[in-house]
């Protein structure tokens, strides 16, 4: 896996991102603090079915819940207007997990938070968003482990 540095990120974001230098600076800051998040370019599918190559931060964030720390899998998509629009955020359950829908999570795993709803650069940023997620998920986890009693290995 290539080492992700600022110049590498700038190349990945090419000219598509209107505020590339701001975006790169934020990503660099966040991945230095949250080392289990990785910047990736991938195809994002919009509601109308169109797709676009967008940058995401994909990986896990450490969430403390009832005295244990869990690595909650998330994917934060950055639009090409970032940071002037909020990221589109999802939990990404593994096959061993199921989504717990609620005030902050829909059945697709999409994350809804006042922090995203009220997003305003430069007061809002990825680092602040992740801190909010960690607090909110620590009270109400977005995923739980699936029961293992019906494992096919026992069939």
């Amino acid at each position: 896996m290539a080492v992700v540095n600022e110049s590498g990120l700038k190349k990945m974001l090419s000219k598509q991102y209107k505020y590339r230098d701001l975006t790169v600076r934020e990503i660099t800051n966040v991945i230095s603090q949250y080392k289990d998040l990785k910047p990736l370019m991938d195809a994002y599918v919009f509601n109308d079915g169109s797709t676009r190559e967008l940058m995401s931060l994909t990986g896990t964030v450490p969430v403390s819940y009832r005295g244990n720390v869990y690595n909650i899998p998330v994917c934060l998509w950055l639009l090409d207007t970032y940071p002037y629009n909020p990221p589109i955020c999802f939990v990404k359950p593994t096959s061993a997990m199921m989504i717990k829908t609620g005030k902050h999570i829909d059945a697709n795993g999409k994350i809804y938070l006042p922090y995203l709803h009220e997003w305003k650069h430069p007061q809002s940023d990825l680092y602040g968003l992740i801190q909010v997620m960690i607090v909110v998920f620590g009270e109400e986890p977005p995923v739980f482990s699936r029961p293992t009693t019906q494992s096919p290995f026992q069939a």
Binding site: K35, D36, L37, G59, N71, S145, P147
Partner: peptide, 14 residues
């Protein structure tokens, strides 16, 4: 090489 942390979740919600 850093593959990142293994995803984990709290025990089954009941």
């Amino acid at each position: 090489l850093n593959g990142g942390a293994v995803p984990s979740a709290p025990p089954t919600y009941t």
